[in-house]
Design a protein around this nucleic acid. Structure first.
Length: 585
RNA sequence: GGCCCCGUAGCUCAGCUGGAUAGAGCAUCGGAUUUCUAAUCCGACGGUCACAGGUUCGAAUCCUGUCGGGGUCACCA
């Protein structure tokens, strides 16, 4: 359980009682009442601002109101004592029994501990990666992939009904370029010489392999064909091969989508036409001429009438074109159709994970969702900032042109999936992230991946060691039930329990704020508390050792503690897709 | 020029959606190793939360403006 919301509920009950007794007026707004960690642990386990928030409305002094609340709070069995402090906070100390009960709860729930139902089964669609099918993934894509995937797990654990989706941009001119690039490689396979890849085509060597496959399949059947004939089949072959490649990359990263949507199919089914017709019916389109953008020099700028969407009616800065000069729909138009499609599939809540370079796109997409769903659908766009790939403090430039183009697969080979996933979450998504290849491989305190994995491995090391010392020591449900947890009274031990007990709240907060990085930070902190307790037992006070040779009951209680910790860490790592290893190699 | 993001310790960053004396890691300095795996721990040093106003019991957090850094700005996707 989330003990913060549990205690908050208890406080609200006290307030109702006070209302009933006509000590305070009825119908006060409780929404600003919070229950949280006091900044200073000396202030107790929990702190609430209830008296501060309500004092004015109740026409009482904060300290007086606090006194009234405290009177009732101290009657609760889980509350040891409560006192007013500072400008009117109420500091609450919970009983040790309460904490030992939390420990039992953790062990009983295993990695399900922290599951929540705040999502109430609401369907949420989260779209991420959606990289163009024109080449393998690079490191920048990995950030969106990891953030999206972790967020999906978090929301799912918090009780939402999550669908993970990938939108394949297989309809624009870029995929024609891809087809042409493939055709050149195909010709090359049949002996033609390519001095240099023409400008604008994709030079990547991955197309060479695909051309070979195509040669095996079709032989020289396309060599004398006209572009009109080969373009479509080459495009399809290339896109399929690229998507296979991308799926392989994602698989290596441990990312799996539930659903792949194709832009091309969307267009072919006439979905874009439907959307535009709908907007026309609403009077939300018109033919107009946009002004040239300021601050950006465009040599080939020419004024031209375009079909525009009145996105300004929904908060956008300018109206946006939905039809290109060649008569095709813009990318924006098909993206509108795609989001409407998601909505029609039952997703009122949509999340898009995009790169920071798409920042300017949010307002128009938000406007579109608003217009198309008549305000019923909501779109939350999470922007992922740049990944600055480095080696020993020096930036490695990422570009498809230069040879230094850094493929995700190469980085995964080098450092492994766990490192990539964890490091991507060590910064909030809207800040740039440094990813230093050398640093993330270090096995030291600097490297949070190892720090956290080590704490998990250490737990298992303790459990293994205990089995050697005590024969027939099994953590069976019965043994756990009977374990004398009241022996866990050291401040370090209690602190560890308290932090573990905060896991459900951390998870719920991460889900509500949609901020996966909070999980990573929580795990680092929790690991730190454990390492400290471990060293305290190893050095300062050997009576704190988890495995105490001549004291089986005490050892048993501590093994419950260590086992619980292992399961909370494992649960946290699972949520962000990192392997909870039992041994460090 | 418009829009979006960022500005917190020498460096890299957290800060639980407005709470009490602003926290970690790195770096620097000083300690702990016959280990339940030191891939770890303990201590010291270090801040005008960019700046100026405003909102209120209370601001790193919300609002306005200024400065600085990054991204982005028809037809591409």
């Amino acid at each position: 359980m989330n003990y913060f919301s549990y205690l908050r509920q208890k406080i609200l009950e006290v307030l109702l009682k006070l209302e009933k007794d006509e000590v305070i007026p009825k119908g006060l707004n409780h929404s600003h009442i919070t229950v949280e960690f006091p900044r200073d642990p000396k202030h107790g386990d929990l702190s609430t601002n209830a008296a501060l928030v309500l004092a004015k409305l109740a026409k009482l002094k904060p300290s007086d109101l606090a006194g009234l609340i405290i009177e009732h709070l101290t009657l609760l069995p889980e509350v040891n004592d409560a006192e007013a402090a500072g400008p009117g906070f109420i500091n609450i100390r919970l009983s040790s029994n309460f904490w030992w009960d939390r420990l039992r709860e953790i062990v009983a729930d295993g990695t399900n501990y922290g599951n929540s139902d705040i999502g109430r089964g609401i369907p949420v669609n989260i779209e991420y990666v959606s990289a163009n099918p024109t080449g393998p993934l690079h490191v920048g894509h990995a950030r969106g992939a990891v953030i999206g995937d972790a967020l999906a797990s978090i929301l799912s654990k918090a009780g939402y009904n999550v669908t993970k989706e990938y939108y394949i941009n297989d309809a624009g001119t870029q995929v024609d370029v891809l087809a042409r690039s493939l055709y050149l490689r195909y010709q090359e396979c049949h002996g033609a010489k390519i001095e240099q890849m023409p400008d604008g085509l994709y030079p990547g060597s991955y197309l060479v392999d695909i051309a070979k496959l195509l040669k095996e399949k079709d032989g020289d059947k396309w060599m004398s064909a006209s572009e009109k004939e080969w373009l479509a089949p080459f495009r399809k072959f290339a896109i399929d091969a690229m998507m296979d490649l991308i799926r392989e990359d994602l698989d290596l990263l441990g990312v799996r989508h539930d659903h792949f949507s194709s832009e091309r199919i969307m267009v072919e089914k006439g979905r874009v036409n439907e959307v535009v017709k709908f907007l026309e019916g609403q009077g939300l389109t018109y033919t107009g001429i946009l002004e040239a953008p300021k601050g950006k020099k465009l040599d080939d700028w020419e004024e031209r009438p375009q079909t525009l969407f009145r996105s300004t009616q929904f908060g956008d800065d300018i109206d946006r074109p939905i039809k290109k000069s060649d008569g095709n729909w813009t990318y924006f138009a098909s993206d509108m159709a795609y989001h409407l499609d998601k909505f029609k599939r039952g997703f009122f809540e949509m999340i898009d994970i995009m790169g920071a370079d798409h920042g300017g796109y949010i307002k128009r997409m938000d406007a579109a969702v608003n217009a198309l769903t008549q305000g019923q659908g909501s779109l939350d766009v999470k922007l992922c900032h740049m990944v600055n790939l480095m080696e020993n403090g020096k930036s490695i430039k990422m570009s498809k042109r230069s040879g230094a183009f850094t493929k995700l697969r190469d980085v995964l080979d080098l450092v492994g999936k766990d490192v990539v996933r964890f490091i991507m979450l060590t910064r909030k998504n809207d800040a740039p992230l440094d990813f230093d290849l050398r640093k993330v491989m270090e096995k030291s305190r600097d490297n949070p991946v190892y720090y956290v994995q080590y704490s998990h491995a250490r737990c298992h090391s303790v459990l293994r060691h205990a089995k050697e010392v005590f024969e027939k020591l099994e953590l069976t449900p019965d043994a756990i039930e009977k374990a004398p947890l009241e022996l866990l009274s050291d401040s370090g031990e209690l602190l560890l329990i308290k932090q573990m007990a905060a896991w459900p709240r951390t998870l719920e907060n991460a889900a509500e704020a949609r901020e996966p990085h909070r999980i990573a930070y929580y795990l680092i902190e929790l690991s730190g508390t454990f390492h400290a307790l471990w060293t305290k037992g190893a050095k300062e006070d050997t009576s704190l050792r988890f495995v105490t040779d001549n004291n089986k009951p005490l050892t048993l209680a501590r093994l419950v503690l260590v086992g619980a910790l292992a399961s909370v860490i494992a649960s946290g790592l699972q949520v962000i897709g990192v392997e909870p290893v039992k041994e460090m190699k």
